[in-house]
Every structure is written in C-alpha cells, then in structure tokens.
C-alpha cells in the first residue's frame, strides 16, 4: 500500500483500509498473522504486569507528558516489536 493510499483512507475515514495495513505491516504481509502479532504483543505486556512488579511510573508519566505525539507513536510501534521479540515467538525473517 502506498502512503497516498493510506492518507486517502485517513481522509475518507476508511478504518478498514488502515487496520488492514497495520496488520499487513506487523504480519509481514499476512493480515491474519498481523492480527495475532498485535494480540501477542498485548498479551506479553499483560503477562509482565500480572505480579505487579515495581515499574518506573515517573518515567512513563514524564515521557507521556514531555514527548510529542509523533515520537510516542513511533515508540508505540517499537514497543510492539519489543514485546513480540520478548515473547520468544518471532515470526519475522530478520532482526530488529
């Protein structure tokens, strides 16, 4: 999908096209795999918090407060791959 295709989808409010792109991107061209990958990242993040370990809440708060939305969006994608990798179930061919 081209960037123009995605921008037109944003303009038209066509979330189906956008969701499909995100799944394709995260699933290496496989939409179903991408959907599972998104779930996998969330499950991995959830698992890490079930025992309520100490976390750097101040860092999180400062980051959300101080960084711009685009940087946080970029971080969001990085975090997806981080947790997918952390899960140990890596479907991608290459490495981060």
């Amino acid at each position: 999908m081209s960037l123009q295709y995605l921008k037109e989808a944003v303009r038209d409010g066509d979330t189906e096209k956008l969701i499909r792109y995100v799944r394709l991107h995260l699933g290496d061209g496989n939409e179903a795999a991408g959907r599972k990958e998104i779930d996998k990242a969330w499950i991995e993040a959830l698992k890490l918090l079930l025992d309520v370990p100490p976390t750097d809440r101040e860092f999180i708060n400062d980051t959300l407060k101080e960084k711009d939305a685009a940087t946080l969006a970029h971080l969001f994608f990085d975090l997806h791959f981080y947790f997918v990798k952390h899960s140990g179930a890596w479907i991608h061919d290459g490495t981060l």
Partner: peptide, 10 residues
C-alpha cells in the same frame, strides 16, 4: 550486521 525484518536472512 543486518537490521531488517522483511526478507529471510537465514
């Protein structure tokens, strides 16, 4: 080293 995830690197 290689950093990419879009082709098989085996």
């Amino acid at each position: 080293e290689i950093h990419q995830i879009k082709y098989p690197t085996h």
